[in-house]
């Protein structure tokens, strides 16, 4: 069902990783991605994977969840592996009719698969260990220099917060509307592509109507509480960085440096 969507889901906890300053977490995730793309051999890749494995262990997030986060990207993995497997030149190891698999192809495919898996599990760790509200808060702070060029950073962050807040509400609403239309005999599971698209109309229209109604009510409620944008607004929880945050970043940078050194030695 719709309720099983896990992308961007937060799993509360009290681990070292959970407690890190979210701004640093975002930066460290960036460093990790840089690490993955900088690595040009299996040793470099292994070092990056060791880094993400270490953080997973520290965060107490069950490995099951990591596997679950990979499910939606299986098609992407399959697609890229097929492309890499069949279209890279090299010494042939297996050939049949027009299919020609080469050693180069096999190596590149394995490399790509590991890289994609590490990339997704790394970035989902960020959302697993940071609540969406804190995350947008951190993004707002990280982007705050853009205020100087009159970029509406606070408004953007507020919109993101509201959007995230309403995802579960809208999922629940969609569920309800679907049931109501099914009770009136709406048929959503049969027919061709065109018929199925037409069957969505009775669901989408009520959903849009209610989304607009909610937006209007929320806007009114915010105004009643004197919301007037980011100017002069203070926070209940200010982000504070501590020694742990700096050391975590240092570790991440150390791994990045290691990858570059390995590249230089093996390259």
């Amino acid at each position: 069902m719709l309720r099983d969507i896990t992308i961007g889901q937060y799993f509360p906890g009290k681990s070292v990783i959970h407690r890190l300053d979210p701004r640093f977490k975002i930066i460290i995730t960036g460093i990790f991605i840089a690490m993955l793309f900088a690595a040009d051999g299996f040793i470099g890749l292994a070092v990056s994977c060791a880094f993400i494995l270490m953080t997973y262990l520290l965060s107490n997030i069950p490995i099951k969840l990591m596997v679950k986060s990979l499910k939606p990207i299986i098609p992407v993995i399959l697609f890229t592996s097929v492309l890499n497997l069949f279209f890279i030149d090299g010494v042939s190891v297996f050939s049949f009719w027009v299919i020609n698999i080469t050693d180069e192809g096999l190596i590149t495919t394995a490399f790509m698969i590991i890289r994609i898996i590490a990339l997704i599990s790394g970035s989902s760790l960020l959302t697993y260990t940071t609540s969406p509200i804190i995350l947008t808060d951190a993004i707002e702070r990280l982007l705050s220099p853009l205020n100087k060029v009159k970029f509406p950073v606070h408004e953007l962050a507020m919109m993101m917060t509201i959007a995230l807040r309403f995802i579960p509400t809208l999922i629940e609403e969609t569920d309800k509307i679907m049931s109501a239309q099914k009770a009136r005999g709406a048929d959503m599971d049969s027919g061709g592509l065109l018929k199925r698209a037409a069957a969505l109309v009775p669901i989408l229209i009520p959903l849009f109507v209610s989304a607009f109604r909610r937006a209007e009510e929320l806007a009114l409620a915010m105004e009643c509480r004197c919301y007037q944008g980011g100017e002069g607004r203070t926070r209940l929880k200010t982000l504070k960085s501590s020694g742990a945050d700096y050391s975590a970043m240092a570790v991440a940078l150390l791994f990045l440096a290691a990858v570059f050194v390995i590249n230089a030695v093996t390259g």
């Binding site: 109501a180 009770a183 009775p202 109507v209």
Partner: peptide, 13 residues
Amino acid sequence: VGLVFQYPEYQIF
């Protein structure tokens, strides 16, 4: 078996 949900006006389209 016809079922009318709570707040059925939200299903009008």
